[in-house]
Design a protein around this nucleic acid. Structure first.
Lengths: 197, 197
DNA sequence: CCGCCCTCTAGACGACTGGTCTAATCGTCC
DNA sequence: GGACGATTAGACCAGTCGTCTAGAGGGCGG
């Protein structure tokens, strides 16, 4: 699909092509051949940049979380109080996870279950990434509790983890239903949970 | 000579063997060869019982939900009020999803993300099954609201779906963390949510 | 300008597995 | 024995991941 010959950063090009394909077919469901054909990169190059498919998967996840966390930080920076930060973030999630943009779907939702039992290194990449996400959410909850925009008394970390898990579950159900209403419902519920009573 | 219908037995045997293996390796991650070897069933027999790997996957899910819903009904029958029914069910979930019993892990958690984009028939099996689960949960929430064991005012269906999604998410995180504490936390939070204020 | 070295590309190849299908065998009953 | 459906054996080829040799390209010292 992607045609540009990026002799500059082939590694990055392979990774971004793979992200596209794997967010549809999963990890075991795609072969290196298909990815490399789509990226117009010969097989010989692949094993120059990556030691194995597993190492490649780990790199894919690491790269994904890097981008993701950066975007998350930007979203938080552009929002006001703690509650607004969280709402803006989950609005973004709902949009990205929509069935109409399969390429921006969350890789945690897509790959976690498949890959956690398959490869310990990939599992650890997933763990590090999700921990970082929850840490940032915890920061926003704490900020919201301090600035008065969030009234919940429970520990910030517990609230953050619970929100994150709910959205993972809602995304899974949205995938099964092939329908975005679970995401809209999750957004409404999140707003409700964070509202000052 | 009541010749027991062996075709049913073999079919069932293949399915139960596959359940075991796939709950570890996923759908695309296992080949028919491995499943059939493990089940001591010759490869040639497979296409006598199933039309394709996809149809096989659909049968696997259907069978899984049949067992699952039956067990769910039994759990509900042995519990008292609506809240107790839900608590008993989620206690069972936490136990089955434990990392130490990978064979009883939830197939929805394991396969939903991988399979929903891969096969529409499998996606629909997943949808029918999860809808049935949420319907039963909704029944228990309604019962609890009626018998006074649940104080929540929100619509029963919304509560049920939200609980189910939270548990899917918690199970995913537990898989990533390779650790059961997220499930214990989910159980505590569920209890808290359902407690009379 | 040349030759050298090292990075990167190229893709054939091997050993194996994937799902699928046809042709033959088996078991049972008439 | 003959017929016939249920069951199996194994061929089939496209695909898998990974290896390997051969060479193109660019930078640099001289």
């Amino acid at each position: 699909m992607t045609t540009a010959p990026p002799s500059v950063d082939v590694r990055e090009h392979i990774l971004s092509t793979a992200h596209l394909i794997m967010s549809g077919k999963g990890f075991s469901g795609v072969g290196l051949n298909e990815i490399l054909r789509a990226a117009h990169v010969p097989k010989g190059s692949f094993y120059h940049y990556f030691a194995s498919k597993e190492a490649f998967g780990e790199a894919l996840l690491t790269r994904y979380f890097e981008h993701y966390l950066k975007q998350m930080d930007e979203t938080f920076d552009h929002a006001g109080n703690g509650r607004d930060q969280l709402v803006a973030y989950f609005e973004m999630w709902a949009e990205n996870q929509s069935a109409s943009h399969p390429e921006s779907n969350c890789l945690v939702v897509k790959l976690a279950a498949e890959v956690s039992d398959l490869s310990d290194t990939m599992r650890r990449a997933l763990k590090a990434g999700t921990d970082a996400i929850v840490a940032r959410l915890t920061g926003a909850v704490t900020a919201g509790q301090r600035d008065g925009s969030i009234g919940l008394k429970e520990p910030a970390a517990a609230v953050a983890l619970s929100l994150y898990q709910s959205w993972l579950g809602a995304s899974l159900i949205a995938k099964i239903a092939h329908n975005d209403t679970p995401l809209a419902a999750a957004l409404a519920e999140t707003r409700h949970r964070l509202a000052i009573t």
